[in-house]
Design a protein around this nucleic acid. Structure first.
Lengths: 241, 241
DNA sequence: CCATCGACTTGTATTATAGTTGTCTACATG
DNA sequence: CATGTAGACAACTATAATACAAGTCGATGG
């Protein structure tokens, strides 16, 4: 697969910048030029790409520096299902079903890239009743030091050492395959709500991919559709009796 | 049956492209030409075939690359599914299945009150393919002067003489009953996305209630979860292949 | 204290080149 | 006549190499 040079460089730099303190200085364009064996123009394109993402910025005569991050860890807002359950007075329990490092299937590879990934499949229970099967994929690099205990006792975004920015979620429907049906204690062929979520870090790169499967008879999504202005009404997953 | 060379090549390439990340570059036409032992023209015909399908695209002087999925547009206003389809270049057609004034069923009465209602059941088609069964209830008072032609050719909120404010939508899953299955041309028991919507007027009173049923294999909802806004902003309905 | 200088940086051009797609013509094959 | 091969050329792209303007910062010297 062919790649564009300046994108490669940008990717490499993104990794480095992620480890640097906001405000710290990057090497000069010329230095990078010799290091990457690319012309200054190419280096600049990579840097400008990142500037467009708001990751870094530059001042003429001064240099390129890591942008002071305007977004403090507000991400808890992204919210886990557990938090919503906790708010409704139910106690949520996770049980790890599968935990393995492996090469990603195509639909994951398209998002996270070709490197190895950690796949964790968990069953979520509310008051002892199973209500969700969640599969999470994350790059092996990020999941390297995670144990089964870790993922059983914490939501994933608390375990990763990256700052998350947001997510895109798709909501669809499917019917229960035998394995998920057994886990959720519903008959095979029962309707399921199936949500795919791609979570991105502060640089906008996808770092987590997950698939949530809910039995339709217990769950539904509630969405507020404002007419004139985007509302601040929180919405989310609601358990129906 | 003997297959045409460029179709063979296109088939092979389709398989490869499916495994590649959107945006990544294919080998150059010349490289493929030597690999497949076919002339550049033949390779081009295969590539152009795939471009027509929207799988890949090319820029002169740059190369062929895997097409990125169309970014789902955000729905800041209360849009209709038809508008979203129109924006994606599909022509949407409505067909009225049922049209009657009647006393509302309990779940509608709870929202709209006890008065008589107009119930309209419509089948929506995109490019001739059925993709949604929509049932709308509105108070008889508001629907009094509507004809079947009206509701077949216009979305409901254009017909009512009230100012709408917003809506609350629930998204759930179900399996297809025989009647809806036949309309949507899916087997009975197939998974469906089932959305209920309550639309309110400027005064906050509910004026419309509707139920949208989509075949799950063609549709899914896309939701953006931004970092700074805890709300779940609906991004709209997206057709999946 | 302050002005100036020089070494460094980014910002912005220009030119050149190898490699790519877009398009055409001419010809062969069944 | 549809399909395939072979070749040529134009237009475009990413990248390299180079040059110069303009901003930053510290050292120097008055």
């Amino acid at each position: 697969m062919r790649r564009i040079r300046y994108q490669e460089i940008a990717d490499e730099l993104r990794g480095r910048v992620a480890e640097m303190a906001p405000g710290s200085l990057l090497p000069s364009e010329s230095e990078m030029s010799t290091e990457f064996e690319a012309s200054r123009v190419t280096i600049r394109r990579a840097l400008e790409l990142m500037r467009d993402d708001g990751v870094i910025d530059a001042r003429q005569g001064f240099g390129w520096f890591v942008a002071t991050d305007p977004v403090p860890q507000r991400l808890e807002r992204l919210g886990t299902i557990e938090a919503q359950l906790g708010a409704s007075g139910l106690d949520a329990v996770r049980r790890v079903i599968e935990f393995s490092f492996e090469t990603p299937p195509p639909h994951v590879r398209r998002v996270l890239g070709t490197g190895k990934v950690l796949r964790v499949k968990r069953l979520n229970l509310a008051d002892g009743e199973p209500f969700a099967v969640v599969t999470v994929w994350c790059p092996a690099r990020l999941g390297q030091r995670l144990s089964m205990d870790d993922v059983e006792s914490h939501p994933f975004h608390e375990l990763l050492d990256v700052e998350l920015r947001g997510a895109t979620q798709t909501i669809g429907a499917a019917i229960a395959e035998p394995d998920d049906a057994e886990l959720l204690r519903v008959p095979t062929g029962a309707p399921l709500l199936k949500c795919g979520r791609v979570t991105t870090d502060a640089a906008g790169r996808p770092v987590l991919m997950s698939e949530h499967v809910f039995p339709a008879h217990r769950t539904e999504f509630v969405v507020e559709l404002p007419y004139d202005q985007p509302s601040v009404t929180p919405a989310g997953l609601r358990l129906v009796e």
